Structure formats: structure tokens, C-alpha cells
Computed example of a mutant assay.
Amino acid sequence: MLDAELDAALCALIEQWNVAEKRIKRAEHVRANEIVAPAIFELRYAGRKIVDSIQIILAHDIFQDAEKHAKVSSFIADATEDCVKAKHDAIDAMMNFVTTWFDETEKSIGVEEIQKFFPTT
């Protein structure tokens, strides 16, 4: 336990990290186990900020040093944002794959064949 503000920020970070990991794994499955590098990089950036905040917490009494407390809060907020970016990168990777697949399928079998499966769209 840190304080209510940091505890809430860390809970939000954990939630975003877990969702990002799940989306990255799903994107890798959609893309036949291809690595989704941009999303992985964003989690790496988040990890760096988490480590930086832990270093400050271990080296300073952040409850007696407002500047250090603010820095830890900033690192946690930035890490959470990096996780959000990772989620978006994973979604982008999936959408790119599906769009490319659909475009190639349309070129391969033609619009008329596709419309047999999706007659109202």
C-alpha cells in the first residue's frame, strides 16, 4: 500500500497491462503467431517506467518528498498510457491483417462470390 492515489493508479496500470497482453496474444493468433512488434515495444516502454518508479520508491520516502511522489505518479500515468497504446497497436495489427486478407480474398474470388456470403452488406 502506498496511498489511495497511487494505489488506484497502480490498479489502473495493472488492468491496462493485462488487457494489452491479452490483445497482443489475440493479435498474434490472428496473424499466425507473428510478433506484434509495435505493441510489444509499448509494453517495454511501460516496463521501463514501472522500473523507474520502483527505483524512486526504494531510494526515497516519497511521502516526505512531494517532487519524488509526483515523479512516481507521472511514471505510473505514462506507463498506463503506454499500455493503452499497446492495446491500440494490437487492434491495429488485427485490423490490418483482416483488411489485407479480405482485400486479397476479394481479388482472388471476386465480389460476387463474397456477396453470396454477405448478401445484405
Rank of each mutant, 00 (worst) to 15 (best):
E42R: 14
A12W: 03
I50C: 14
K25M: 07
Y45I: 11
A9Q: 05
G47W: 03
A12C: 09
V36H: 04
D7V: 08
L6H: 07
I35D: 08
N18M: 06
I40T: 02
I14R: 14
A12V: 05
Q16S: 14
Y45T: 12
E5A: 11
L43I: 04
C11Q: 14
R48G: 11
H29P: 00
E42L: 10
D7W: 00
A46F: 03
L6R: 07
N18I: 04
R23Y: 02
Q16D: 12
L10T: 06
A4T: 14
L6Y: 01
D7P: 03
D52Y: 09
V19P: 03
A9K: 09
I50K: 10
E21Y: 08
A4P: 11
V36C: 05
C11I: 12
G47C: 05
R44G: 15
A27W: 02
A4S: 15
E28K: 03
I24R: 02
E28Y: 01
V30Q: 02
E5T: 12
F41L: 09
E42V: 07
A32G: 08
P38E: 04
W17Q: 15
K22M: 11
I24M: 04
A8S: 09
A46H: 00
W17S: 13
E21F: 10
I24D: 03
Y45D: 12
A27K: 01
V30R: 02
V19G: 05
F41Q: 10
A32M: 12
I14M: 14
L43Q: 02
E42M: 12
Y45L: 13
Y45P: 00
F41G: 06
R31G: 06
I14C: 13
E15Y: 14
Q16E: 14
E42F: 11
F41I: 10
K49Q: 14
E28L: 02
A4K: 15
I40K: 05
A37F: 11
R31Y: 01
A4M: 12
V36N: 02
A8Q: 07
F41K: 06
D7M: 03
A46K: 00
I40M: 08
K25A: 09
K22D: 08
F41C: 06
E34R: 10
V51T: 12
L10H: 04
L13Q: 06
